[in-house]
Design a protein around this nucleic acid. Sequence first.
DNA 1: CTGAAAGCGCTTACAG
DNA 2: CTGAAAGCGCTTACAG
Lengths: 353, 353
Amino acid sequence: MTEAHPEPPAAEAAPSRRQPRKSAPTIYDIAELAGVNPSTVSRALGKPGRVSAKTEARIRAAAAELNFRVNPIARALPTGRTNTLALVVADITNPMVFGMVRGAEHAATAAGFTLVIAESQESGETESAAIEQIMPSVDGIVLATTRLGGERIADIADRKPVVLINREVAGVPSVVSDVEVGVRQLVTHLHALGHRSIAYLSGPPASWISERRWASLLDMAEELDLALVEIGPSPPTIEGGRAALRRVLASRATAVVAYNDLMAIGVMKEAAERGTAVPGELSVAGFDDIFGSDLISPPLTTVRAQLVTAGERAVARLLAQVVDGEVPPPDAPLATELVVRGSTGPASAPNAG
Amino acid sequence: MTEAHPEPPAAEAAPSRRQPRKSAPTIYDIAELAGVNPSTVSRALGKPGRVSAKTEARIRAAAAELNFRVNPIARALPTGRTNTLALVVADITNPMVFGMVRGAEHAATAAGFTLVIAESQESGETESAAIEQIMPSVDGIVLATTRLGGERIADIADRKPVVLINREVAGVPSVVSDVEVGVRQLVTHLHALGHRSIAYLSGPPASWISERRWASLLDMAEELDLALVEIGPSPPTIEGGRAALRRVLASRATAVVAYNDLMAIGVMKEAAERGTAVPGELSVAGFDDIFGSDLISPPLTTVRAQLVTAGERAVARLLAQVVDGEVPPPDAPLATELVVRGSTGPASAPNAG
DNA sequence: CTGAAAGCGCTTACAG
DNA sequence: CTGAAAGCGCTTACAG
């Protein structure tokens, strides 16, 4: 029955490619080399001072010789701690998330934690699935501008420490921007330029922060007696902005405030193609001050958010829960600030409505 | 000795905050509920068809009832497989990496793998440390435009499957761009516009791809009998580009080709501030075609790279090693393509040299 | 097809 | 201070 040249088992023979290369040294290897019990190795390499100085020295020497690195996943099993944090964003390629990613990365790395970034791709279901998948592997989760419903978020926060960015849910810690200050500055600026009719291009339907921006705009419109319309919701992308231009124009608003800079850029691109002058015929403003906002011509007037700081703070608050087991009292919202550039100018003509 | 009110152990009592919330159900819980041995649960939930249909149904029902998710880190310990891949990039906030990240993310997610992104922050040491830290937790690593030396890379590849992006090291699989085609198109374009003297702004010192770009430029310069100088190396950032403008101008070159779009944008910003007309007095071109390249004014002429595809392919090749245990033969380099926009124009004046 | 056992690489009470 | 043992939640030969 056996053939002349039986196929060698996959694991064997093959030069070096199929094989799980050098398998990493373990604490047992160190224990043997140092002549101690593995548990002593574990202690020596963990919190210091629990082992005699000379034993520790011997163990460290052995560890160095073998080039030992503790296996984080083996450590995670008994401790339940993975030393990993997750950051969930809607779209990794949206420049708006860079700042948050960078801030979160730094804060996590500084604390010796690894950050994994998951993408929801602007879909609540994808987001939910991504979170379920990542949850057992991390010690806590930062949810940035999420699509999830409040109950779902509360449910997740029930299972792992969670910090929200730009969203509020009862009982879940969050880091938010103080939308109002920036919006006040923006609307005041537009009003001073003679604008009396403004359109707001809203973002994703479930966006808490888009809601907040709208609400602040409405407050200001009432205060300054301006006409204000909401157009949307639209996808928070360049395409979303482009697609909305006709409605903006049709509304006879002389200024448009987009949910974010990406949409504002889309409006400007479409306007350029259609021959609508910015800011001559239409003033345009956005939110966030992303990379690219000062590149476009005219450069974009926008309400700058402290994205890096938001990422840092979110991780810091998460770490407070994860390592200290306590949720710190909420700190003040992050200030926003109007950055006036060329895309806003004097109102062209009185509202023709 | 015992006090009247001994402090309760931290684990107890506390309302709900310090506590490792709902602890997740395990296969033991399922086994008990379904009346089978845990090993049978493991089989039923793993590869199908190893357990009788009715037993499997019972087990699945129990798993669903308990809302069971296999614990990936517990699974990783006996199998040695984490179902996680790492992507190491120099700088997460460089728009150049978006495309790669997106492509890699998609390919990884589609295969049921989690992608973790690590940042080297343009430093070889940070990169090395980040890799050491992440290595035990992942099944394989994509190294994008790395700062590491060839020996170090070979050493890493010896321990885990590795795929390189835009770099070549003997024995390590890679995904590279076909620099030559794009450079040929670019230099031909500049030559046709009358440019006879070109400056190349090189990127990071150890950058393999910057080297390749320079080498292709040199080939073309010889072929078309053009003057060519290298300026740099410089940081691959907007700042790096800005800082180089004076040297570019001093060189009397009529066109400058930057290592990447970020640097090209820096050159343009600095030129705008100094009143140097682009492309009137100086033509500018870059590489990659990042977000923002078509936003700046004039829009940037650039050699577009297939970044998304590069990310996808790199992960695909990594997966081939990780799951199939084989390294597929190298495929053809990814095509590059010249995108002509407004930042390049007729040469201003003959080289005054 | 299914159970009982051993093991992945650590950590951590429990003794001494 | 240090050793011996049990356990984290899985997987996978080994039997039957």
